[in-house]
Design a protein around this nucleic acid. Structure first.
Lengths: 223, 223
DNA sequence: GCCGGCTGTAACCGCTTTGTTACCCGCAAC
DNA sequence: GTTGCGGGTAACAAAGCGGTTACAGCCGGC
């Protein structure tokens, strides 16, 4: 379970991160609004914790941007007494909020409740250049071709590559993201999965133009 | 939309009741735990607001009792700072809570959010396209065919799918919404229920046109 | 008691997905 | 050349999952 924590206060960020890590969650951190959005794209977390006051983009703006492409549960951190903030946050699609200061235990309880309620679900159409994927339908569409049905793993792989479109992604990182926590050695799985994915999305699977082999990994070319 | 409000403080009860009534909800009131349970049985409300401190039975006990027979959204009213209460309430199956004192606007926002989440929002359609259901009669009608009698579970499943008509609904989410508390493992139940529902609403149950299997779940096609 | 409907459980089938093993080829180092 | 390596490919085995049938427990009505 992957959580994104965005807060500009380093101490608080670390406290939250520590608490959640202890509880068994994988925590991604971001120190400001833009970074939060970037990590969100890269990591596709299952839940997002957003401070309202952040440099660059406010928590509101980040929440709005996230809501435009995903329904992941969002928890906002607010300052006590700022009721306007609260109402605005909920209006923007935030699922819950927490008044600062709060205790780690409370945070954990609320996050668990949110995850339980959300049933951890992800309905996000993602699209970069000529490649787009539909997480709900489990399909990918290349250019104007008909959507292709993908399996769970194929979709996850493509999602990872799409999140880093144009840049090579390390094999180890892909293994990590797609299978979870395999120890490094299992390149064969990745090899197979890439092969199967190419069969589905490449016009000529023997001469890939989309999903290219790069140094120590793969990359998606979207131009 | 029927809401049950249980609080022993008459002033607060009236304030809440006023707010919710203004917002267009039908409000049932109860002044103590036993009364709350009784009204719950009689009225079958769509959402319950429970104060924790009540004579007779505490909000915890009422919540527990309600949870034993229903999954209606429950919102608890707690005293700020009583973190124990909060954790306990969420553990008992409460869906949300509000710290006293709170503003009517906040209460309303949270209640709307809860109803939306539960899929029984104000405007939850009982009829979409060619599919309509009757919650009182326990029937479903497809197009111009004669209404079909459904069981409690079948109806709940269909209601969930109808609330998300056209979109796939995750199996876990369906399990959660239909049975309440089951953790992921019990796909067999869902499989069965879908099968039974198809027997009733599909013209040819072997080749479904309405209730389709989607990646990671099911969806209702209504055009 | 008996009966019938509802719900939960188990088992089976067939298909898809995923993991594993093996082999091929090109390339660079030796 | 030969060797080793890494990637691509094929074939097969294992696991998972949805659909289906069958059956047992439960409960309410008679």
């Amino acid at each position: 379970m992957k959580l994104l924590v965005a807060d500009d206060d380093a101490d608080l960020r670390d406290l939250i991160s520590f608490t959640l890590t202890q509880a068994g969650y994988l925590v991604i951190k971001a120190a400001d609004g833009p970074a939060a959005l970037k990590r969100f794209e890269e990591e596709a977390p299952d839940l997002v914790v957003l401070d309202i006051n952040m440099p660059g983009l406010s928590g509101f703006q980040v929440c709005e941007a996230i809501r435009r492409r995903s329904r992941v549960p969002v928890m906002m951190l607010t300052v006590r007494g700022e009721e306007e903030d609260l109402v605005r946050a909920l209006g923007l699609g935030a699922d819950d909020y927490l008044n600062k200061p709060f205790s780690p235990r409370t945070l954990l309880a609320r996050i668990k409740a949110l995850l339980r309620r959300a049933g951890i679900e992800n309905n996000t159409p993602l699209s970069v250049g000529r490649v787009s994927i539909d997480l709900e339908e489990y399909t990918a569409r290349i250019g104007t071709a008909a959507p292709v049905r993908l399996t769970k793993l194929e979709l996850r792989l493509l999602q990872m590559l799409l999140a880093n479109a144009g840049h090579a992604v390390n094999s180890d990182r892909l293994l990590q993201q797609v299978w979870g926590h395999r120890s490094g050695g299992d390149r064969q799985l990745l090899k197979q999965l890439v092969h199967r994915l190419r069969q589905k999305i490449e016009a000529d699977p023997a001469a890939p133009t989309l999903l290219l082999t790069a140094a120590a990994g793969y990359k998606l070319v979207v131009e």
